[in-house]
Protein backbone atom coordinates (compact mmCIF):
# COMPACT_ATOMS: atom_id res chain seq x y z
CA UNK A 1 0.00 0.00 0.00
CA UNK A 2 1.26 3.44 -0.81
CA UNK A 3 1.51 5.89 2.02
CA UNK A 4 1.23 9.46 0.91
CA UNK A 5 3.49 11.64 2.96
CA UNK A 6 3.44 15.29 2.18
CA UNK A 7 5.63 18.20 3.11
CA UNK A 8 3.73 20.67 5.22
CA UNK A 9 4.80 24.01 6.60
CA UNK A 10 4.26 24.53 10.29
CA UNK A 11 4.68 27.92 11.88
CA UNK A 12 6.10 27.20 15.32
CA UNK A 13 7.07 30.07 17.61
CA UNK A 14 7.17 32.51 14.71
CA UNK A 15 9.41 30.42 12.49
CA UNK A 16 8.36 28.31 9.51
CA UNK A 17 9.44 24.69 9.43
CA UNK A 18 9.00 22.34 6.49
CA UNK A 19 8.37 18.82 7.64
CA UNK A 20 7.36 15.53 6.01
CA UNK A 21 4.14 14.26 7.59
CA UNK A 22 1.77 11.35 7.23
CA UNK A 23 -1.99 11.85 7.32
CA UNK A 24 -2.57 10.08 10.64
CA UNK A 25 0.17 11.84 12.57
CA UNK A 26 -0.66 14.12 15.44
CA UNK A 27 0.90 17.48 16.08
CA UNK A 28 2.60 16.42 19.30
CA UNK A 29 4.62 13.67 17.64
CA UNK A 30 5.65 16.00 14.83
CA UNK A 31 6.67 18.75 17.25
CA UNK A 32 8.58 16.42 19.54
CA UNK A 33 10.11 13.87 17.25
CA UNK A 34 10.52 15.66 13.96
CA UNK A 35 11.13 19.26 15.07
CA UNK A 36 12.68 18.69 18.49
CA UNK A 37 10.36 20.79 20.64
CA UNK A 38 10.74 18.55 23.67
CA UNK A 39 8.82 20.93 25.95
CA UNK A 40 5.67 19.42 24.46
CA UNK A 41 5.22 16.40 26.70
CA UNK A 42 3.57 13.10 26.00
CA UNK A 43 1.35 12.16 28.91
CA UNK A 44 -1.90 10.26 28.63
CA UNK A 45 -2.04 10.38 24.82
CA UNK A 46 -5.86 10.61 25.06
CA UNK A 47 -6.64 14.27 25.54
CA UNK A 48 -6.97 14.14 29.29
CA UNK A 49 -3.76 15.15 31.06
CA UNK A 50 -2.83 18.40 29.34
CA UNK A 51 0.93 17.82 29.34
CA UNK A 52 0.94 18.32 25.56
CA UNK A 53 -0.92 21.66 25.66
CA UNK A 54 0.22 24.17 23.03
CA UNK A 55 -1.34 27.41 21.88
CA UNK A 56 -2.73 27.51 18.35
CA UNK A 57 -3.98 30.90 17.17
CA UNK A 58 -4.45 32.19 20.74
CA UNK A 59 -6.30 29.10 21.98
CA UNK A 60 -4.88 26.42 24.23
CA UNK A 61 -5.36 23.00 22.62
CA UNK A 62 -4.18 19.45 23.18
CA UNK A 63 -1.47 18.85 20.59
CA UNK A 64 -1.96 15.08 20.87
CA UNK A 65 -5.51 15.36 19.56
CA UNK A 66 -4.64 17.88 16.86
CA UNK A 67 -3.87 16.30 13.52
CA UNK A 68 -0.62 17.68 12.15
CA UNK A 69 -2.23 18.56 8.83
CA UNK A 70 -4.89 20.57 10.63
CA UNK A 71 -2.25 22.80 12.20
CA UNK A 72 -0.84 23.73 8.80
CA UNK A 73 -0.93 27.47 8.24
CA UNK A 74 -1.73 28.28 11.86
CA UNK A 75 0.36 29.97 14.50
CA UNK A 76 1.64 27.39 16.96
CA UNK A 77 3.29 28.46 20.22
CA UNK A 78 5.09 25.98 22.44
CA UNK A 79 6.79 26.58 25.79
CA UNK A 80 10.08 27.12 23.92
CA UNK A 81 8.65 30.20 22.24
CA UNK A 82 7.46 31.87 25.40
CA UNK A 83 10.41 34.11 26.11
CA UNK A 84 12.13 33.65 22.71
CA UNK A 85 15.62 34.67 23.83
CA UNK A 86 14.52 37.42 26.17
CA UNK A 87 14.47 37.01 29.94
CA UNK A 88 11.90 34.54 31.19
CA UNK A 89 8.23 35.25 30.73
CA UNK A 90 6.48 36.55 33.90
CA UNK A 91 4.45 33.36 34.10
CA UNK A 92 7.64 31.28 34.06
CA UNK A 93 9.26 33.57 36.62
CA UNK A 94 6.28 33.38 38.92
CA UNK A 95 6.32 29.58 38.71
CA UNK A 96 10.01 29.51 39.64
CA UNK A 97 9.63 32.03 42.46
CA UNK A 98 6.93 29.93 44.10
CA UNK A 99 8.52 26.57 43.22
CA UNK A 100 5.23 25.73 41.61
CA UNK A 101 6.24 22.33 40.34
CA UNK A 102 7.48 19.09 41.75
CA UNK A 103 8.36 16.48 39.15
CA UNK A 104 7.86 19.14 36.48
CA UNK A 105 6.32 16.94 33.82
CA UNK A 106 3.00 18.77 33.68
CA UNK A 107 4.53 22.24 34.12
CA UNK A 108 5.02 23.22 30.45
CA UNK A 109 1.39 22.35 29.75
CA UNK A 110 0.18 24.31 32.74
CA UNK A 111 2.26 27.35 31.79
CA UNK A 112 0.76 27.25 28.28
CA UNK A 113 -2.78 27.00 29.67
CA UNK A 114 -2.05 29.89 32.03
CA UNK A 115 -0.63 31.97 29.20
CA UNK A 116 -3.64 31.35 26.96
CA UNK A 117 -5.85 32.52 29.83
CA UNK A 118 -3.79 35.62 30.61
CA UNK A 119 -3.62 36.64 26.95
CA UNK A 120 -7.39 36.83 26.87
CA UNK A 121 -8.02 37.93 30.41
CA UNK A 122 -5.12 39.72 32.16
CA UNK A 123 -6.96 39.84 35.50
CA UNK A 124 -8.62 36.45 35.94
CA UNK A 125 -10.55 35.55 39.07
CA UNK A 126 -9.76 32.48 41.16
CA UNK A 127 -12.63 30.60 39.52
CA UNK A 128 -11.47 31.55 36.04
CA UNK A 129 -7.96 30.26 36.76
CA UNK A 130 -9.38 27.00 38.06
CA UNK A 131 -11.52 26.68 34.94
CA UNK A 132 -8.53 27.30 32.69
CA UNK A 133 -6.44 24.66 34.47
CA UNK A 134 -9.22 22.05 34.50
CA UNK A 135 -7.69 20.31 31.51
CA UNK A 136 -4.22 19.96 33.03
CA UNK A 137 -3.45 17.20 35.44
CA UNK A 138 -0.79 17.44 38.11
CA UNK A 139 -0.39 14.42 40.35
CA UNK A 140 2.27 15.96 42.64
CA UNK A 141 1.48 19.39 44.00
CA UNK A 142 -2.25 19.84 44.15
CA UNK A 143 -2.60 23.03 42.08
CA UNK A 144 -2.51 25.52 44.96
CA UNK A 145 0.91 26.88 44.05
CA UNK A 146 0.05 26.98 40.36
CA UNK A 147 -2.92 29.17 41.06
CA UNK A 148 -0.90 31.43 43.38
CA UNK A 149 1.84 31.68 40.76
CA UNK A 150 -0.63 32.69 38.07
CA UNK A 151 -2.13 35.35 40.35
CA UNK A 152 1.39 36.69 40.95
CA UNK A 153 2.22 36.58 37.25
CA UNK A 154 -0.71 38.89 36.46
CA UNK A 155 1.03 41.68 38.37
CA UNK A 156 4.17 41.50 36.22
CA UNK A 157 2.56 41.01 32.83
CA UNK A 158 2.68 44.68 31.81
CA UNK A 159 6.41 45.04 32.33
CA UNK A 160 7.10 42.23 29.88
CA UNK A 161 5.22 43.71 26.95
Amino acid sequence: MIKLSRKITLNVNGKNYEVLCEAGENLRDVLREKLGFLGVKKGCDFGGCGACTVIIDDNAVYSCMTWAYKAEGKKITTIEGLSSGRPLHPVQEAFIALSASQCGYCTPGIVMSALALLNKNPKPSFEEIKEALAGNMCRCTGYVRYIKAIVNACKNLKKFE
Binding site: G47, G50, T53, I56, N59, A60, V61, Y62, M65, T66, S113, A116, E131, A132, A134, G135, N136
Partner: peptide, 9 residues
Protein backbone atom coordinates in the same frame (compact mmCIF):
# COMPACT_ATOMS: atom_id res chain seq x y z
CA UNK B 1 -18.06 21.21 28.23
CA UNK B 2 -14.68 20.89 29.84
CA UNK B 3 -11.75 21.28 29.65
CA UNK B 4 -11.08 24.51 27.81
CA UNK B 5 -8.72 22.71 25.42
CA UNK B 6 -11.58 20.57 24.17
CA UNK B 7 -13.87 23.61 23.88
CA UNK B 8 -11.20 25.15 21.67
CA UNK B 9 -11.00 22.13 19.37
Amino acid sequence: IRPVQIRNM
